[in-house]
Every structure is written in C-alpha cells, then in structure tokens.
Design a protein around this nucleic acid. Structure first.
Length: 201
DNA sequence: GAGACGATCAGCT
DNA sequence: GCTGATCGTCTCT
C-alpha cells in the first residue's frame, strides 16, 4: 500500500511525474489525517532544467534538499504566501523533483474544508500547487521529511488512468526558463475538477 | 545590508 | 482579465 523508498529512486523523473497521477498523498498532523488523489504534477529535470531551482548545479541552503536521495519532501515558500510541495526523486546528487499541483480530496474532507475555508465542491479547494499543499496542511515544516514516515506518505490505491485520460502540457509559471518552458512536462487528469486552470483538459 | 522577484491565489470587474 | 497580498532567498555591495 504505502510506496516503498525504491519507487522514488527512478531516474526518469518525467515518467515518474506521470505515474504519480492516481497515487494518494497522505498527511498526519496531530490527530488529523487528510489525503488526496494526485491529479496534476510537473517534472523538474535536475541540473539540466532551466526551470529548476537546481539548474546548472546550483547548490544553496534552499536547494540542498533536492540533492538528497529520492523519497523526501521539498517544500518552499513562493510569492511570500504559498507553500509548494515537491517529491524529491532519483539518486543522491541528482536533484530531480515532481511538483504536486492538484489533488482530489479523499480523506478528512471536513478538515480540508476548514483549512481552505471553502466547500469541497469547489474545485479551487485543492487545484494549483499552493492550494493543494494548504489543503493537506503542508508548510515549510515538512521540508526534507521522509515520505515513508508517519507524517507524510504516498499510497498506491490501484487507481490507474489510461493514456487517453491523461494530458501532457507545458509547465505553468516558468516563462523565464526560455526553451525549456515549452517542454510537455506537466501531467494532469483530463476533465478533473481539481486540476488548475491553465489548459484544463 | 539592501533590493529584486518568484514553480501563486482569490477576489473583484 | 487584472491586480494586490506578502516574505524567504539570492545576488550584489
């Protein structure tokens, strides 16, 4: 059920980003357990990806988390108010990561609604990376936490989407990455309410 | 020590 | 469609 650590060591971060669709992301904060089905992701291809914080081998205090062995969380604050959650993948010193951009609420709906102050019937409750992280209560405190622990983990519920149910498109919000901005490394479930706005399928 | 800006969101028009 | 909110991180001095 819970994904094993080897799962995250896959060197093909683009394939992994697609494979993570349908997996279930859990968090446990105090006694509150919440979870959602991953319905939108983006791949960040380590040192060769201009959109990645680790492009060109940049190592800073912040990006150090991405250089660790796959299977931990990379969380950082964006625009001063949104926590973005990534899954670090591949071997140590290969700073690949998958950004979780949308989840479909599955467990602890009432808790999620309270955190987001809106009903689960609104897709915006967990569409987009900032919203998805907040729905699950993820903040900077989750940075570098192992995904095999008891605070945050991913399960395989045998949910499978066919290729005709999955769409690939360019990633969002990375125009500065020049030619890499057009790579189709964003994956999402077509027509799902909890997928963020741009190019909705 | 200061300045610029970002893997965004929600609310209003 | 437009725009304000809001602060950690990085770069340069």
């Amino acid at each position: 059920m819970k994904l094993k650590s080897e799962y995250y060591l896959n060197e093909d971060v683009v394939a992994l980003a697609k494979d993570l669709l349908g997996k279930v992301l859990y968090t446990k904060i105090g006694d509150e357990i919440t979870a959602g089905i991953i319905v939108e992701t983006e791949a960040y291809f380590g040192v060769k990806d201009k959109a990645s914080h680790a492009y060109g081998g940049r190592r800073t205090n912040r990006t150090e988390t991405m250089y660790a062995k796959g299977g931990i969380a990379y969380v950082y604050l964006c625009y001063g108010m949104h926590h973005l959650f990534n899954i670090v993948t591949a071997a140590e010193n290969e700073p690949h990561a998958v950004l979780i951009r949308g989840i479909e609420p599955l467990v602890g709906i009432d808790i999620i609604e309270a955190r987001r102050k809106m009903p689960v019937t609104k897709g915006a409750i967990a569409a987009g990376p900032g919203s998805a992280a907040k729905a699950l209560g993820i903040d900077k405190g989750f940075n570098a936490k192992h995904l095999e622990g008891n605070e945050i983990w991913v399960e395989d519920h045998k949910i499978r989407y066919g290729d005709d149910e999955i769409a690939a498109s360019p990633r969002v919000g990375i125009a500065y990455a020049q030619e890499h901005a057009l790579l189709p490394w964003r994956f999402f479930v077509k027509g799902n309410k909890y997928v963020s706005k741009p190019n909705k399928g």
